[in-house]
Write a protein that binds this DNA or RNA. Structure first.
Lengths: 219, 219
DNA sequence: TAGATTGTTAATCGATTAACAATC
DNA sequence: TAGATTGTTAATCGATTAACAATC
């Protein structure tokens, strides 16, 4: 009933997508791996293999039980209660993230936002939150028991912030700053770098045009 | 001199990080795979193998030529000139992205931003840009020859926007909307979903605590 | 029962790591 | 030359795909 054996990294990375798609499937109570896979943008073989790590939530000849599978995914991901999240950086991006409405429905609650700039402190965010001075960071983390934090500072500030987060007990960091953070083993970091993403698209465009050229040259 | 053979997906995904780290290495003109790998958060074996796809920019016994390698990476990624980028969605996130200063230095130039909401049209962004009505999207793409676009709309709007982008000639999409886009083969989509990223961190926390529990039970 | 579809196994494919010969 | 470090090969590892027996 509570499988949670080792889940391969590559499988884990897809579970949130499955959960999202299933959550959008209001009213449907059964779906085949073929249909669900199409909606998730993966192959049905891969979907079935991935879902097998959750134990059996399908019925042969019929398909998967949508609400049951959704609940199992949420449980596997640890989303049975909300996680408090602290945001560091109150610039354009930090504010956009703090105001992101989807947060709550996906299992997270912003419990604090801080900024190094004194001028920003005091500014209001959603949910009755106010930007607080960086000096309060450790205190906020301890008070809210947040173990997940978002870094949305300029590159220079990111490593010291990460150090402080880790010292205060944070073990999961979503990093938007364009730097490689160094953190102790056991602390998870996920990097999101707009520039990197765009450069990968540029690479794709480049390949595309090279491909076209060599086809023109007729190989 | 111009290798550009097939580059494995997994290697391609790391090239922008190498480029970023090398760009931050002002003044250094030579570096060993060991040092550079550490700065990039990968193993030296992996770094050497990855860099080999660019041809030879290292000297045995010495290390890699930093400026040479940086230029080779930029060339491989197609960053020898700036790519025009159109942003769809002028909400919190779209605005934050449009105002992101790092854009230009990484090889991109925002040439247009549109929003479906009439009330937002006319609002000013950086670089003399102004939010334009959604109806102008195709025209903007054709005028600027943009082939890369960013979708920063709510989930509902994303698929119709993607369809319109593709129809207008866009072949690379950076998608921030929490939906699986369906696009024709040959169009590259990169998804960035804040919720997915956080859920993966939650999963990590969950695993962490399960690990702790079973250790307590003394296995 | 017949048809459909899961869960799982085996085969394939690709990516990472280790090791070292080539060479500065 | 001796020491260092790349470029590359071979070995390992993990992920994906294909296929099908189990079973509703």
């Amino acid at each position: 009933m509570q499988p949670s054996g080792r889940v391969p990294e590559s499988t884990a990375a897809r579970l949130p997508v499955y959960l999202r798609v299933l959550s959008d499937l209001a009213g449907v109570d059964s779906i085949s791996s073929e249909e669900l896979a199409a909606a998730c943008g993966v192959s049905s073989a891969q979907l079935r293999k991935d879902l097998a790590v959750l134990g059996s939530h399908g019925t042969r000849g019929v398909g998967y039980d949508v609400p049951g599978l959704r609940d199992a995914l949420a449980a596997e991901l640890g989303l049975e209660q909300d996680w408090p999240v602290v945001i560091v950086g109150g610039g354009n991006l930090g504010m956009a993230l703090a105001n992101y409405a989807g947060f709550l429905s996906r299992g997270f609650r912003v419990v604090g936002i801080v900024d190094a700039d004194q001028l920003r402190a005091g500014e209001a965010v959603v949910g009755g939150l106010v930007i607080q001075p960086m000096a309060d960071l450790a205190r906020i983390i301890r008070r809210t028991h947040a173990v997940i934090a978002v870094i949305a500072t300029p590159a220079e500030g990111a490593q010291p912030v990460a150090d402080e987060l880790v010292a205060a007990g944070v073990t999961g960091i979503l990093n938007f700053a364009p730097v490689v953070l160094s953190v102790p083993a056991g602390v998870a970091v996920r990097d999101v770098d707009l520039g990197v993403e765009l450069q990968l698209l540029a690479f794709h465009e480049q390949q595309r045009s090279l491909g076209r050229d060599s086809r023109r040259e007729g190989e």
